[in-house]
C-alpha cells in the first residue's frame, strides 16, 4: 500500500513537473478555443479583441478596440510565456481586466490553446 502511494506521488510529481509544451497539440487547442468564442474571434474584434497577430503584440494595442485601463497599463507583450501566465488566471495577472474569465487552469489545455493561437496566427484567415 505504501509502495503504491509512493508510486502515485512520484507520478503526480512528474506530471506536475512536465513541461507544458511537451504535449502541445494545436488540434486539441482548437477545441479549447471554442470556449473563447463567446467574446473573441481570430480576424475581427468582438467583445474581446481579435487574436490574429497576437504573438509579439503589445497588450491593448489593437487599434480602435476599447481596452480596460488595467490592460492598457499592463505593459505585457504577448508570447507563449505571458499567455500561459494570463490564461492561468487573467484577473490575477491583470487585476481590473474586463476579461472576466476564471482561466484555463489545466496546463495541458493551456499549452494546446497557445499552440492553436500560434498556428492560427499563420492561417489564411489571419494573413488576409
Amino acid at each position: 500500500m505504501k509502495l503504491r502511494q509512493r508510486v502515485l506521488a512520484v507520478m503526480l510529481a512528474l506530471g506536475a513537473a512536465a513541461p507544458a509544451s511537451a504535449a502541445a497539440d494545436a488540434r486539441r487547442g482548437e477545441q479549447v478555443y471554442k470556449r473563447c468564442l463567446a467574446c473573441h474571434a481570430l480576424a475581427y474584434d468582438r467583445v474581446g479583441p481579435r487574436h490574429c497577430g497576437l504573438f509579439g503584440r503589445r497588450a491593448a494595442s489593437v487599434f480602435g478596440f476599447g481596452y480596460s485601463a488595467a490592460m492598457r497599463h499592463s505593459k505585457i507583450v504577448w508570447n507563449a510565456r505571458t499567455l500561459d501566465q494570463f490564461l492561468t488566471d487573467p484577473k490575477k495577472m491583470v487585476p481590473g481586466t474586463t476579461m472576466t474569465y476564471d482561466g484555463v487552469r489545466d496546463r495541458t489545455e493551456r499549452a494546446d490553446l497557445i499552440a492553436y493561437l500560434k498556428q492560427a496566427g499563420q492561417s489564411a484567415e489571419c494573413r488576409r
Binding site: 471554442k34 470556449r35 473563447c36 468564442l37 463567446a38 467574446c39 472576466t100 474569465y101 482561466g103
Partner: peptide, 10 residues
C-alpha cells in the same frame, strides 16, 4: 457554446 463557457468562467 462560447456563452456557456463564458458564464462558466464568470
Amino acid at each position: 457554446q462560447g456563452a456557456v463557457s463564458a458564464y462558466l468562467g464568470a
